[in-house]
Simulated scan of single mutants.
Amino acid sequence: MDKIHVAMDESDASQRALMLGQLLSRQLALPLCVTSVVAGEERVEPRRVALQSRLSEQQAEDTSIEVVVHASAKDYLGQLAGREAVGLCMMAHGRRPVPEMLIGSVTAGVVRRANRPVYLCGPRFDVDSHREVKVLMVCVDGSRLSEAILPHAVALSKRLGARLQLLQVIDTAAAAAVPLDGGHADVMESGYVHGLARRLRSEHDMDLDWEVLHGDPADSIVSYLADCQDTMLAMTTHGRSGLSQVVAGSVSHEVLHEVRCPVAVLRPADVG
């Protein structure tokens, strides 16, 4: 990652993404760019003026602005977020009850297209409680899907100088309903996350810790994070398209809606 981009429009909500971008830019010592997508050339200058005003409010006048004309904000930002050199920050909206609207249709589309982590702040994001990332907390559940974010999390934690923590929630009822060949049998064993931590220590020569919670996954994660400060959560999503699906995953969209910390969300490329 060589540059932090913040996806913004003229809304108040998108200004929260700027705060997250500033946090990562400062901690990683990377340049920051505000990126906005408009449908036609006639919207370029008005959008630039509006963004300059937003940056002035945040005393961030030196931040570069990139206004791009493109037919699809989802496509452009998804391609941008998919670049190894880019870290993209976005605001996730908190609308109910349609699952996709919990993170916003554009944000959901970007996550589906990027196949790399997208850095999101939900409607409850509290920048005063999370001024830097001292702990990078990674949700795992015994599945290949959840573990797909680990290489990204390991690399990011080292660059941030943050402590890596594995977080597992054992939901007995849910685990019992999953077929044994679904990759979740290990969830019922307390040794799963311990063994995973041991493997990561050995492979990456790093110190990390882990925590096992019990109960409903989303509720347990939100409750655990309630009093945490200077933390980022990292998790994967199945990211299926269509409003009939839970676009951000039954756990991740609820977590994103409730937590006060930023969340790095990955939709792995091999998810169907």
Rank of each mutant, 00 (worst) to 15 (best):
D2A: 11
K3I: 14
H5W: 10
M8A: 05
M8I: 01
E10L: 12
R16W: 09
R16F: 04
L18T: 08
M19L: 15
S25N: 06
L30I: 06
V37M: 05
P46V: 07
A50E: 10
R54F: 14
E57R: 15
Q58K: 05
D62E: 14
T63D: 08
I65C: 11
E66I: 10
H70E: 04
G78W: 00
G78C: 01
A81S: 10
G82T: 09
E84V: 10
E84I: 09
G94I: 05
R95T: 02
R95N: 06
R96M: 07
M101P: 01
S105L: 02
T107L: 08
G109R: 00
N115K: 05
N115Y: 00
N115H: 06
R116M: 06
L120D: 01
G122M: 03
P123D: 12
R124C: 08
D128E: 14
D128T: 08
L136P: 09
R144L: 10
R144Y: 04
P151R: 11
P151L: 00
H152F: 13
V154E: 08
S157P: 00
A162Q: 07
L164D: 03
L164N: 01
L166H: 07
I170G: 07
A177V: 09
G182T: 09
V187G: 15
V193M: 06
A197E: 03
R198D: 15
S202Q: 12
D207A: 14
D207L: 11
D209K: 13
W210N: 12
L213D: 04
L213P: 06
H214P: 10
A218Q: 04
I221Q: 02
D227F: 13
T231A: 02
A234L: 05
R240D: 03
S241V: 02
G242S: 06
S250Y: 11
H253K: 12
H253V: 05
E254Y: 03
L256W: 00
E258Q: 14
C261W: 00
A264Y: 02
A269V: 14
V271K: 13
G272S: 15
